[in-house]
Structures are given as structure tokens and as C-alpha cells.
Design a protein around this nucleic acid. Sequence first.
DNA 1: GGGTCCGGTTGATCCAGATCAGGGCGGGTC
DNA 2: GACCCGCCCTGATCTGGATCAACCGGACCC
Lengths: 254, 254
Amino acid sequence: MTFSVATIAAEAVAPPPIPAPQPRTAEAVTGRCAGCSARSKGLCGALTAGDLPDLSTTSRPLDLLSATPVVMEGEEADAVFTVMSGMLKLYKTLPDGRQQITGFATAGDVIGLAVGTGYAYTAETVTASTVCRMSRTALRRLMERHPAVQGRLLAMTSVELSAAQDQILLLGCKTAVERVSSFLLALSRRSRPLADGTPSVFLPMPKVDIGAYLGLRPETLSRVLRKLEGAGAITRLTNDRIRIEDPAVLEAAA
Amino acid sequence: MTFSVATIAAEAVAPPPIPAPQPRTAEAVTGRCAGCSARSKGLCGALTAGDLPDLSTTSRPLDLLSATPVVMEGEEADAVFTVMSGMLKLYKTLPDGRQQITGFATAGDVIGLAVGTGYAYTAETVTASTVCRMSRTALRRLMERHPAVQGRLLAMTSVELSAAQDQILLLGCKTAVERVSSFLLALSRRSRPLADGTPSVFLPMPKVDIGAYLGLRPETLSRVLRKLEGAGAITRLTNDRIRIEDPAVLEAAA
DNA sequence: GGGTCCGGTTGATCCAGATCAGGGCGGGTC
DNA sequence: GACCCGCCCTGATCTGGATCAACCGGACCC
């Protein structure tokens, strides 16, 4: 699954409110990162506790409402963002408006890494989210000072690349049923099961976004889900939660 | 697309420029890499001439006929290969035999980088090729000894990721005509024009492989090429060479 | 020479999924 | 309450590209 590092850009059209000024004493900033829920993930996981001041002084958390753009495709890539909570969609847009979602980012994922000067895609929250901003120059300095960060970045980028190649296989070869089954299985591997132990997946994003990720229309997605439900593979609990009744059926279909 | 690795290095530490070759005592091994046509590309471009013995003693060139597998999806990833000449196709296979080509590798590209223990794809020559083998442990040692190699690897992986996301956009959104036009344009940007200055592309791989890369059947590819030829966008010179008559028409279609 | 094989091309037909259209429902607002 | 609006679902129809089928021409072999 893609969920992970993304690339995108620039200034949000509707910038989120700027948080109150941060305390700048070492203790305060160290404490902020030390208590971060994404502390062990993303780039930060490559640093030891002693390095936290380096992080806290160069990064800044942002609380965002849903449907808020974080970076815009093509704009100057001057910062990267680590997702602390929530979910974002990453997408590319063709000149005529067609959009392809390349991935969804959740806690620990890093978005905004760019090859050139511009973000490669747009990132936008699909639920209320918290992200942590770090300027590109700060990231560069951090990498120079802590080589482990570069290693972590390489590892994350490699995982992203592998996920992207899986998505290429999905889009190039698979049928609608296979795509949806693969998607549900990949998601279920990343989420905790229900209280009774059966696996389930949480789908906070609108169906049209899932379709845009899988290369399908929302109508088709709806029909496929109905078919999978009829086959006993899944049960739709609510609009945004699906229980996996029989992973084997999904495996066979994927 | 996967094609050769470009230059720009995301956030990576910039590799040093390549100085002129310098004489060494171990002339035999130094000489082999010093005269390598891919010397300035791929991972090797991150090293200075003085480091060449490190390379020569751990890497070994291999001459391969066409249709020769180099790495197999799922097998233990114990080595990486730098392409010195020729062309390879990289593909993933579904259990029922459907194949999706994720990219073509040419001189300077590195294949066989793996996230886990197994190769993520199969790589097979499409023309007679020369590749240079380096064991994974040797690569790890090289990275430890020369941090610039890790930076180069990150840069190359980032470019690969960006290309993969472009391919996701292509497969998820574009029509057959748009796919072929995008493909021809991307190729033409990487190849030298004909003697008379008009751009052209070289397609040594069979049409079925181009189709497997673009998510199209060979019949469809043939029809699209005919249509583009009819529109005055291209001319088919030989079976494996196409002249771009009007890049603007392709741009409009892509 | 004649044969086979294989890649490519062209034509006819089919079908998975897109598109078009309508309706239901839950949440928000006044 | 009534109204609106977004999202989702379902049915009917359409279509781009797949599939099926035939043919062609060059490479290779005997």
C-alpha cells in the first residue's frame, strides 16, 4: 500500500491558523518532541533522545481541519511535513482536471519530499489532522549532522517506491474486484482488529477518493463492495468501516 | 519511468564532481572501472577516481545475451547490478501469469535494490547487455566508507519514485492515445535526435513489452501508432525507430 | 527452394467498467 | 419542522480497449 512518504508542495490555499508562538527554551522544545505520538516513526525515529533539541527547534506542529491543502503540486518545495495524526490524500492532477490519488498518508508518513524544486503532487487532509512542519534547509542540516536520518529517509523512500510499483501492477493488470480486494487486504494488515478479533478496515475518506486511488469510478466501487459482501467476504458495518469476514476469499480475489 | 537516473538529488548530500583519472599502483583493477562507460553514472558517479580500487575489487562486469534473466522476483536479493550498456525490462508477475512491466533500465541505472530480503521484480535483458554485479554486503560496506554513495542512492531512489508516480497517473487516468504519446515524449527527451535534428526514439523492445508497460495490448498499441502517424505526429522509420514529426501534437495528446 | 516460427498488423466482435440518470438518506441550517 | 446539500447507492445504457481471428513478412533452419 502506498500510505507513506509523499511529495508535494507549497503553500496551502487556505493556510491553517498559525499556532501560538512556541517556547524556545531547550527543555520546553525537547519536551514537545519527546511526547510526540509519532516520535518513533518517520524521520524522527532515526534520532536518539539526546538529539531531540535539534528536532524541536526546527519543527513546528500544525493542526488542520479536513479538506485542507498542505502542499500543492508544482509549487516550490520549501518544507516537508510529518503526519502526527489524521489522514491525507496525495494526488496528481492532469490539465483537464482528472485526478489520480497516488497514496494516503497516516501517522508517521512524511510528505513533501521532492526530487526537484517543486512538489510532485498535492497533499490534502481527508480528516482533521496534525502535521509537523520542517523546512527543507533544516532537514538538510539535520541529515548532515545525523547520518542516520539520511539512512532512514532512504529506507522510507525505498518502501514508498516498492508500494508505488505494487500500485502500478494493480492499475496495469488487475480487474475491479482484484483492485478492491487488494486494497482492503493491504489496509487490514495495517489496522487493528475489532474487539472480537475479526479484522476490519477504517475508511474515513469518501468513496470517490478510494476510486481515484484504485483507478475506478465510485459507482464501480459500490458495485464491487456489494458483490464482495454477497460473496461473504466482507460486511459493511457503517459507511466508513468494513469488517473482513473471510480474508481467504479476498486473497483469492486479489 | 524507470529509465536512467537523472541528476538531481533530492535532499541528498551532493556527490562531488568527477575528477580526471589518476594513476594508481593497482592499475589493473583501477583501470577497469576507470574506463567504464557508466563510470560517471549510477552509484559509481558518487566516487572519486581515488576510490576506484574499492569499486574494481568488489564489482564484476557481465556480458549477457538478450532475454537473459538477471534477477528474479522473490528470490534472495544478494546483489545489485549497474547497467553498463543495453536495455533490460523490469516486471512483476501475478500468480496467473499476467505481467506488468514497471520500467526499462538502460546505462547507468541500478537494478536489484530491495526493501526486504527478496527482489521486488524480475529483470531480464531485452537486448544484449553488459551489467556490473556488486554484492549487497559490498554495497553496504561501500556506503559506510563513502557516505556520498548513500546520498547518490537516495537521489536515484527518489527519481525512481517520482517516475513511478508518473506511471501511476498514466495507468490510472490516461487513455490509450495519451499513454502512448506520453511514452514517446518521455523517451524522446532522453535520446539524441537524428542527424537532421528531428527528434526520434529507439524502441528495441518488442511491442508486447511496450504494451505491458503502458497497460495496453499490442493490438491497441499498433492501432494508436497508426492513428498518431495519420495525425502527422510521428513517422515509423523502421520497426524499432520512430521519428517525432510534431512534438506539439504529442504534447497535446499527452 | 520450402517450411516453420514469431512479431507485427488489421478486422470483427465482445465486455468490463464508464457514463448517464434517478433516488435515498443523514447532517446541517434556518 | 422544512429545506438543502453531499455522499452514496442502484439501474440502464454506452464505449474504449480487450479479445478473437486471420494474415503478412522476415529470420532461421533444413
